[in-house]
Design a protein around this nucleic acid. Structure first.
Lengths: 342, 342
DNA sequence: AGCCGTCCCGAAAACGTTTTTGGAAGGAGG
DNA sequence: CCTCCTTCCAAAAACGTTTTCGGGACGGCT
């Protein structure tokens, strides 16, 4: 089952077998066939470990996906789809994914990610779901291993990131609301320390300004992307006497919470207050009223991240570009307008 | 950076360093400390490939997660949570996950999973999302590598599987419906060739019989777990003159479709027809009417699968038990009754 | 004939560990 | 003084590849 055995049985040297399996062309068609045939008979499979040892690369991409599973709302569907995209993206290029399972229930990570990555000699790392200022992130970025962030703005020598066009999406959302006649438009932003949170907030403000609308400070409240924070935020948005007639929530989950809070306050959505979300998670179309939202191409993000990472691995000299994927407005029922009839 | 360097700098032999790092006790406290210290200074990390080569095991668990990403409804949230559970389960035990990315957009898998598994010398394999009669599955089961199926009934020498108590769950569902006064209870089953599909159908029939209720053939129609099939199934259920007053759908997604179809037929849910689902996906509580359903402990399934697999790896002599996790009835609005006031 | 180029292929070193085998040092017991 | 355990450690083989270096065979030139 080792290359040695194949060599013996086909009457050639070890190096020749190796050459055959690596597709070198300096081996005659006849020997190639003979080697391939005996390999097939012996059911020979090359050992990755040995190859990794000598080539100093593993054809493996490390994935650190921070999913605190104790978080009640962890089921954030975003990363699942990104992962699917990632998988398909790198699969075609001959890489497999190494999912680091080094996270403890209490959030401690006993064996730092970077250490595991080096241990396995992964050729690249994908970072998702962790806090931008996690010290471990910085260590990884500073390492010589190529890194791609997903919704995590890191840059460096061999590192870059991919995310949706968050500011564009936010602008799209408020523009839509405005086109429906709203002028008092509030926002429930994501955590401003995260890239998507900050950018969507930026986009909101930019578009409000561009439209000549007033965006007083009390019309922007910060959530954490999850449902409850949306509920809470909406309550505080509703308290002033001049309440907004529309709100742009920086995530669908928060939009949901917002709608719930509005309904609890006896307001009708969208008649009394319009809501638009961000993400287009599966929920969005099934919920009632169905959610108008900004759709992110989640699979596409994974795909892009994978391909870009491999690109960076195989061309270490070119500095990797920051990738921004387009988003799309999906009009449903939660803000009335032309879809109100649905 | 190799063990050799550490040995040189701390004035001991290579084997001693190895012993220190593997926690053998036949090394004096003094040398141990010295070695550890220089290792720290050199920032030494042992190379997994070399270790794998000689120990013939990798501390890696292969995961084959078949996710046709071209399927419009692929976003099935089930596996995401299972994966999270799996990750945490095996992480504590010192294993990492190797996610095979060898699936092509058109469904071809160019390099069979088993081959990759052997290549990387994974210590065990987790199978999820694939068809029970996929020939590749059989090959994997027949291999000497320990295997755990998730919702995939495979058994063999070193193989077993874990799933929810599907028949119990189904019985729970129809019992609940019956307790609400329903007697004409239909079901939209999952694909009967899959374990969960078959078992939930079995449970439905068993409970109907136990309750002395009539379950004519036209009251059971087979779907594929996804939304559209539920819609379609509901339409055919509604056509006979003696239409059911309640239906048990073998998945939440199908329940959703069913509700949609019922509403399209101008029936009110739950007043005119009650629906209960299975899974308790995130959608279930947000949809309107919110879904009464049977909750699966998805994270728990992953956790159990991981632990059981590792158990089997480390105790190859004991034959692994089939694991069945309890489910739970979650009463919401979609079938009236005591939650109708919600 | 002699020289050179091309085409195939083999020998051997290297990658970084673990494990087996055995041996030196030192103390205890006779 | 001799023998016999312990305790600690070193040497070396083994794991299964890739890659470098070089060499034989063969044909075509001059």
């Amino acid at each position: 089952m080792s290359i040695r055995e194949v060599a013996r049985q086909s009457g050639v040297s070890v190096s020749t077998v190796s050459r055959v399996f690596n597709g070198y062309d300096d081996v005659s068609a006849a020997t190639r066939e003979r080697v391939l045939e005996t390999a097939r008979q012996l059911d020979y499979v090359p050992t990755a470990a040995a190859r990794t040892l000598v080539k100093r690369r593993s054809q493996l991409l490390g994935v650190v996906l921070f999913t605190g599973y104790w978080h009640p709302d962890i089921h954030h569907p975003f990363f699942q789809e990104v992962l699917v995209g990632l998988k398909h993206g790198v699969g075609e290029l001959g890489y497999d994914l190494l999912l680091f399972a080094t996270e403890q229930p209490d959030g401690r990570r006993p064996d730092p990610y970077l250490r595991r990555a080096r241990q396995h000699r992964v050729d690249g790392i994908v970072l998702m779901g962790l806090e931008p200022r996690d010290p471990e992130v910085q260590k990884i970025v500073d390492s010589p291993i190529p890194v791609m962030g997903v919704d995590l703005d890191i840059t460096g020598n061999r590192t870059s990131f991919v995310s949706s066009d968050n500011v564009g999406g936010a602008r799209l959302a408020v523009r839509h609301l405005h086109s429906l006649g709203h002028t008092r438009i509030a926002t429930i932003s994501g955590p401003l320390r995260t890239k998507p949170g900050a950018d969507r907030s930026l986009g909101y403000r930019a578009e409000m300004r561009a439209l000549g609308l007033d965006a007083p400070a009390e019309h922007e409240v910060e959530g954490d992307f999850y449902t409850e924070s949306g509920e809470e935020a909406m309550r505080s948005l509703l308290s002033p006497r001049e309440r907004p007639t529309a709100v742009f929530a920086a995530s669908d989950l928060m939009a949901l919470g917002a709608i719930k809070a509005a309904q609890a306050a006896k307001l009708r959505v969208p008649e009394d207050i319009a809501v638009v979300g961000f993400d287009d998670i599966q929920l969005a179309e099934h919920v009632s009223p169905s959610l108008t939202t900004i759709r992110q191409d989640k699979v596409g993000i994974g795909l892009a991240a994978g391909k870009a990472l491999v690109e960076q691995i195989e061309n270490p000299n070119v500095t990797p570009p920051v990738l921004t994927l387009p988003v799309e407005l999906v009009v449903r029922a939660s803000c009335g307008g032309r879809a109100a009839a649905d």
